[in-house]
């Protein structure tokens, strides 16, 4: 796991829009568009309010209720992926 518990924050300069539960994020500098599925979309929206991994996991658990241990792994994986795509930054 590459995630080192450093908080991540949503890059607020990236235009995005939710349509029918899916999130479209535009990354102009990479000339790329990203399509987030529902769970990644939830993380993305939570990231607009908090950058704390713990907060994200708690809020995701409120939605999915599968336990914080499993969710921590999944959220970290998702954040790593978003980081590689330049959607979130460390802070």
């Amino acid at each position: 796991m590459q995630f080192n518990n450093t908080d991540r924050f949503q890059r607020c300069d990236l235009p995005w829009q939710e349509i029918e539960g899916r999130i479209l994020i535009l990354s102009p500098e990479r000339q790329k568009a990203h399509d987030l599925n529902r769970s990644a979309g939830h993380i993305w929206k939570i990231l607009s309010e908090t950058k704390s991994l713990e907060d994200i996991v708690i809020q995701m658990n409120d939605i999915y209720g599968v336990g914080t241990k499993q969710l921590t792994t999944d959220v970290c994986r998702c954040l790593d992926s978003m980081g590689r795509e330049g959607l979130v930054a460390r802070g």
Partner: peptide
């Protein structure tokens, strides 16, 4: 492909994406 998917979705749902 991603953009086309969202454009089609927006068109079908009458959401003025542009």
């Amino acid at each position: 492909e991603v953009l086309n998917r969202f454009r089609n979705l927006a068109t079908n749902k009458a959401i003025p994406l542009q």
